[in-house]
């Protein structure tokens, strides 16, 4: 193999083009970290700031935002993984001709998040399609069941936010799961059936081991995204409680420098949680060398 003989110097030099990118990441996170400790906040060295960690750990808004973000991310990930996997299972049974038409399931993958937000507002908003349809049926109104049922998930905007994330992420789960499922030999389940295995046993012993690795890796990505993204909560979410990204941004953008260390400290907490999931992702990916990957 030629690469064995390549001098070591070359191998290090090969990564030179990516150095600016890595530096940008390290510098951005480093700066955030320093400011979370109260350093480098002001250009005047005479002004000192307290580290932000004590402030966030002692304040209610931080816990509220953190748990709210975790809640939204978990619910939308759970729904996206279940619905996306079911869709992949259903697509597998379709004959080729119908499958081509069913490829429209990829539409949300191309739609930008802000457009997904708009669609959810059109469909679920107070003046939206579903609200109108429900209102139009007086029978439901008589039972006191107006479109407010959609606001049932108590904090304002939660339902819309979860709907948007599921609509965007479920096709992504389908994409990854279907890629693996396509290679699954259905004769295995037929044989198991002939040998007397019930539907549950067939699913647990044959289909599940094939399904779960791509579903889990897709799930981690979907979770990370819905946990920390900005665009959709900015359009759909409420402010009380707000998603962590929105809360931090408001503290950074609209408040004075004294609020800076606390905002940066919550970013570091967010980063730590995200990194834990990133590690889980790469451990999962290592187990499935041949699967389709996102990154």
């Amino acid at each position: 193999m030629s690469n064995r003989r390549a001098p070591c110097r070359c191998r290090v030099l090969a990564f030179l083009p990516l150095v600016p990118f890595v530096l940008l990441m390290v510098a951005g996170i480093g700066y955030t970290g320093m400011q979370s400790l109260g350093l480098l906040v002001s250009t005047r060295s005479s002004v000192a700031y307290e580290p932000g960690y004590a402030a966030i750990l002692g304040s209610a808004w931080f816990y509220r935002s953190l748990f709210y973000s975790l809640y939204i991310a978990s619910v939308s990930t759970g729904l996206a993984v279940i619905l996306g996997t079911l869709l992949a299972l259903a697509l597998r049974r379709l004959p080729d001709r119908l499958f081509t038409a069913a490829l429209v399931y990829k539409v949300p993958l191309i739609l930008p998040h802000v457009v997904i937000g708009l669609i959810v507002l059109l469909a679920f908003g107070g003046r939206g399609l579903i609200a109108r349809a429900v209102d139009a049926i007086s029978f439901w109104a008589a039972l006191g069941l107006t479109h407010r049922v959609f606001d049932l998930l108590s904090p304002p905007g939660s339902g819309a936010l979860i709907a948007a994330y599921v609509f965007k992420s479920a096709p992504f789960v389908t994409l990854l799961v279907y890629a693996v499922l396509r290679r699954f030999d259905t004769r295995q389940t037929e044989t198991a059936r002939m040998l007397g295995a019930g539907a549950f046993l067939r699913f647990r012993c044959l289909l599940f081991p094939v399904l779960w690795p791509p579903a889990a890796t897709a799930g981690v990505i979907v979770f990370l995204f819905s946990f920390g993204a900005f665009d959709l909560p900015f359009l759909l979410g409420g402010s009380r409680p707000a998603m962590l990204a929105i809360d931090v941004f408001n503290r950074y953008w609209y408040r004075d420098l004294s609020a800076r260390p606390a905002a940066m400290a919550s970013l570091i907490v967010m980063l730590a949680i995200s990194l834990a999931f990133v590690i889980v992702y790469f451990l999962l990916v290592r187990r499935q060398r041949r699967g389709v990957r996102h990154v």
């Binding site: 890595v22 990441m25 480093g30 920390g228 990204a245 941004f249 905002a263 970013l267 967010m270 990154v295």
Partner: peptide, 26 residues
């Protein structure tokens, strides 16, 4: 190499706000 690859791929997975605000100030 696997670890290096994972580190290099990480920016796509992290929520962008976690480093973007630091990058903004830089």
């Amino acid at each position: 190499t696997a670890v290096l690859e994972a580190v290099l791929l990480t920016p796509a997975l992290l929520p962008s706000i976690t480093f973007a605000i630091g990058v903004h100030q830089l």
